[in-house]
């Protein structure tokens, strides 16, 4: 690994983030009302152990980041592509019920293929429509699973 030996801000943030999650778990565990019968081996013990483990790991990572031993491969990051896929997922989550599975899946598919650098919209669109329709029909008709029909309700 070609790590750059510099203080890693990302490593520091990851470490602190883990400590924060550990704190949330610990607070949640302390707020449980535990019946006295279960006082010793109740539902609190394990979360507290996990919380300790997370906090220690977080501290170790933060320390490594500070002492320049948290090595991260230098990489050329295309944040735009990440954001487009994330947007595709958020859109799909919000449109699945109102628009239905097929349109939501087409939007997600197009977003992902665009993020991966494809600009052949016609090809991607055809693949997306076929894939979404075939899986919808296979899942609802053959496997008997429920998927939201949405705007295409009357058509399918």
């Amino acid at each position: 690994m070609n790590g750059s030996r510099s203080r890693s801000l990302a490593g520091l943030l990851i470490g602190l983030g883990l400590i924060a999650i550990a704190a949330v778990i610990a607070v949640d565990a302390m707020h449980m009302r535990v019946p006295p019968v279960h006082a010793r081996v109740g539902p609190r013990v394990f979360p507290l152990l996990v919380s300790c483990g997370l906090a220690l790991s977080g501290a170790a990572i933060a320390w490594q980041a500070w002492t320049r031993t948290f090595l991260v491969e230098a990489q050329d990051t295309d944040w735009g592509a990440v954001a487009i896929i994330a947007a595709g997922l958020v859109l799909q989550i919000n449109l699945l019920k109102p628009l239905g599975f097929i349109p939501a899946a087409i939007i997600l598919f197009m977003a992902v293929s665009f993020a991966f650098g494809s600009r052949r919209f016609l090809r991607d669109g055809v693949v997306a429509v076929v894939l979404a329709s075939v899986t919808y029909l296979a899942f609802t008709r053959l496997l008997g699973l429920q998927l939201p029909p949405g705007v295409l309700k009357g058509l399918l």
Binding site: I85, G88, L89, Q92, L96, F101, A105, L108, F109, M110, V112, S113, F114, A115, F116, G117, S118, D124, V127, A128, L131, A132, T135, F139, L145, Q146, L147
Partner: peptide, 18 residues
């Protein structure tokens, strides 16, 4: 690759939703 990952994500969300 764009089609492969597009398909993977469609199936992933489908599997999780169902």
């Amino acid at each position: 690759q764009p089609l492969l990952y597009g398909g993977i994500l469609v199936f992933s969300t489908l599997g999780v939703y169902s």
